[in-house]
């Protein structure tokens, strides 16, 4: 079957994407699905929220991606006294030149790891989130573009909630996906314990996919075909989330767009040409998990069980 002209992702690029997954997989062992989701999120030009306990490899994951893709990497540790200027940068008076000179903050990087984002005050959080959304920063009335590609990986600690500012729903919505890494399985952990230090390993990672090619692939994602039948199915899911009464609020149109974008990126990673219901189903937990809340908190039904119910309740038309 001839490949449609717009879908130009060469076999070579496909192979390189697989190499990216494989190389990051040597740093984070036994988490291929999470890595592929994270890569799909990157390809879809979305930002990623990782919710997990400390020590699960969040930093390693971000670093490994930056290294493998040859991207400039910055880590920001969020604390309660972090100010917006600490992230965005500030104009500082230079005595010798007699002018204000802008000193860019750590956000001027291609991969930004925002560690423990819920520790900062809402003001600081919103500075980061605005930058994520706009892909630019305005300081002292001057707008500066952020580098491209631009990929934020934020982390949240789900358990330690003392003195934190949980992200409100409207802010959570800015993240295309939310995943958790979880504990490795026994075999993976054994390899981890036997292997070399992860940081040493990372330093030796070769660049597998140069930034220019990454951006080319990103631009292909939106051209992947979504048939009317697929859109019917997607709308069925959206409608069910709104009408079933299972959730406090149904999925927003933005959530629908996010689902489609993520599914397209997933299709590309899977070397196929059009989106299938299965692709939507695969990315759905990561894409909508942080956008939906059980209608009845008393039910104590885990949100993943509700998502399962959502998926099972909406039929794929023949």
């Amino acid at each position: 079957m001839p490949v449609p002209p717009s879908n130009i992702v060469s076999l070579d690029q496909h192979a390189r994407l697989d190499t990216v997954v494989a190389q990051v997989g040597t740093a984070i062992l036994g988490k291929e699905h999470a890595i592929r989701l994270a890569l799909a999120c990157l390809l879809a030009r979305g930002h990623l929220l990782i919710e997990d306990l400390p020590g699960m490899g969040k930093t390693i994951l971000a670093h490994a991606f930056a290294q493998t893709l040859g991207l400039h990497y910055q880590r920001i540790q969020f604390t309660s006294d972090l100010l917006p200027a600490d992230i965005l940068g500030a104009a500082i008076y230079e005595r010798q030149q007699g002018t204000f000179v802008f000193h860019p903050g750590p956000i001027f990087a291609q991969v930004v790891l925002a560690d423990e984002i819920n520790r900062a005050t809402p003001k600081t959080q919103s500075a980061l989130l605005e930058a994520m959304e706009e892909h630019q920063v305005t300081v002292e009335g001057e707008t500066r573009d952020l580098p491209s590609p631009f990929f934020v990986i934020a982390t949240q600690n789900p358990i330690d909630q003392v003195g934190t500012f949980p992200l409100p729903e409207s802010q959570l919505d800015r993240f295309l996906m939310r995943i958790e890494l979880g504990y490795p399985d026994v075999a993976a952990e054994r390899v981890l314990l036997q292997g070399r230090d992860r940081r040493e390993l990372l330093a030796q990672f070769p660049v597998c996919l140069p930034p220019a090619e990454l951006m080319a692939i990103q631009s292909v994602v939106s051209t992947i075909h979504a048939a009317p039948a697929l859109l019917d199915y997607l709308q069925g899911l959206l409608a069910f989330s709104r009408q079933s009464g299972l959730f406090r609020n149904g999925l927003s149109p933005r959530a629908g767009l996010a689902l489609l974008r993520a599914a397209r990126a997933w299709v590309l990673l899977d070397r196929r040409e059009h989106v299938l219901p299965e692709d939507i189903q695969t990315v759905l937990p990561a894409v909508v998990g942080h956008r939906l809340h059980p209608a009845d908190a008393y039910l104590e039904q885990s949100s993943s069980a509700l998502l399962e119910k959502l998926l099972r309740s909406v039929g794929v038309p023949a």
Binding site: A34, E51, R178, E180, G289, S302, S303, S304
Partner: peptide, 10 residues
């Protein structure tokens, strides 16, 4: 407790 996405088994 925040709801968790369905990547891991429950």
């Amino acid at each position: 407790r925040l709801p968790r996405p369905g990547v891991t088994a429950l």
